[in-house]
Amino acid sequence: MGITTLFLQLRTRLLLNTHVQVGTPRMDWVALPILNRVRNPIYCFLSHYINSITHSHIQSHLVGAVQQHFNVGSARKISINLPPLPTQKAIAHILGTLDDKIELNRRMNETLESIARAIFTSWFIDFDPVRAKAEGRQPEGMDAATAALFPSEFEEVEGQEIPKGWQIKPIGDILEVKGGSTPSTENESYWGGNIPFCTPKDLSNSKTPFILSTERTITELGVGEISSGILPIGTVLLSSRAPIGYVSITIAPISINQGFIALIPNESCNNYFIFEWLKANMELIIGNANGTTFLEISKKNFKPLSLCLPPKKLMQAYSLLINPIFTKIKSNLIQNQELSQTRDTLLPKLLSGELPIDNPEQFTGVS
């Protein structure tokens, strides 16, 4: 069974997913109408409240033999324990403040990721600074010291026009490329340790550049069953099958299953460069995959893919520019995780009165 999801549709209604089995998204909803069609504290209170109670309610009211689901009749039986109106507004205000900060961080990260992608595209795909210098212009938005690291002409290497002095090399000659495996799930001594164990499923619902958590963990004994062992912080992971294309960076030592290709960065190739290169070249990667049941890009097919590598000094300049951007993205993600945990901890305590709100009017100014 999956986690019950509540969808908040602004201004009109709460939509409650009635199928709790994880799988393809379906248009199976129970609609809980809200009389007031304008977004307000009461609406926000109800959304938080229902989110907190529906999972246990649904689990005890499932019907169906083939595919269990939750129907409209059961939804009507949801009991809502409403505190006084000022308290509802106060709870909505407290939790809404946390939600607003989470949303602000999310939007900031979208902007930062767009900036990082634009810099990579300009420098390493379109070669804008090189083209500008070739035309006798100063590269836009770039100081003289950084501009000096770019050549002013192109040359042909292996049939490709690239900036003079750069190299075309197989990615397997630049980076250490590793794969993973899964220890026997029948051996309990391998599982439940303190080492994160990542599978593509852990990235399926995440659109962020970093892996914050994994569903499962393994022990040192479990790690011993994996050829790649524990991968270092900053490793870039590419899901290699089912599907190909999830890309993320580790923020803690981690082990992986057979669904990944792991790329270990080094001085010649920054992990954020690798991350952006994978994103920009996904069509090339998928084009080199094979398989009958599902497509898979093997390490054997991945390692020969060619990468246009800039000189070491330019890679260092790129790192100095891009590292603070990704550091801020990571900081925002961690903060959002902490804010979400705080919100989810506060909610039941505020609803039950364990954390009393003695003067709710102070939060809203409305009695």
Results as ranks from 00 to 15, higher is better:
P356G: 00
I297M: 01
F210R: 08
M1K: 02
L355Q: 09
L112Y: 14
V20E: 05
S240Y: 04
P25S: 04
N288W: 07
I34L: 09
L8D: 13
R11M: 06
Q362T: 13
F197R: 12
L350P: 08
D344I: 08
S240E: 01
R107E: 07
I249T: 15
E156M: 10
A242D: 10
Q138T: 13
W166S: 12
G172H: 03
S152P: 03
T12R: 14
I58F: 02
T219V: 12
E220R: 12
T219C: 10
N359I: 12
E155G: 02
I357W: 01
K299A: 10
E140F: 00
I230E: 07
P170V: 06
V157C: 02
M142C: 09
D126V: 10
S181C: 08
S74E: 13
F70T: 11
L231V: 01
I171P: 04
L32I: 15
S255A: 14
F124K: 08
T185V: 15
H69E: 01
W123S: 02
F124G: 09
V72H: 11
T217S: 15
I357Q: 01
K201D: 12
S367A: 06
A116Y: 03
E338P: 05
D202R: 09
S60N: 15
I334A: 05
Q258S: 03
L309D: 00
G2T: 05
E155I: 03
L278C: 05
L175S: 01
N105V: 12
M27K: 06
S255W: 06
K77L: 14
N105W: 05
I3W: 13
Q341E: 12
N71C: 08
T219F: 14
L278H: 03
I94M: 08
I171N: 02
S122I: 05
S298T: 15
A92I: 05
E155C: 03
N205Q: 13
R343E: 12
T12A: 14
S239D: 00
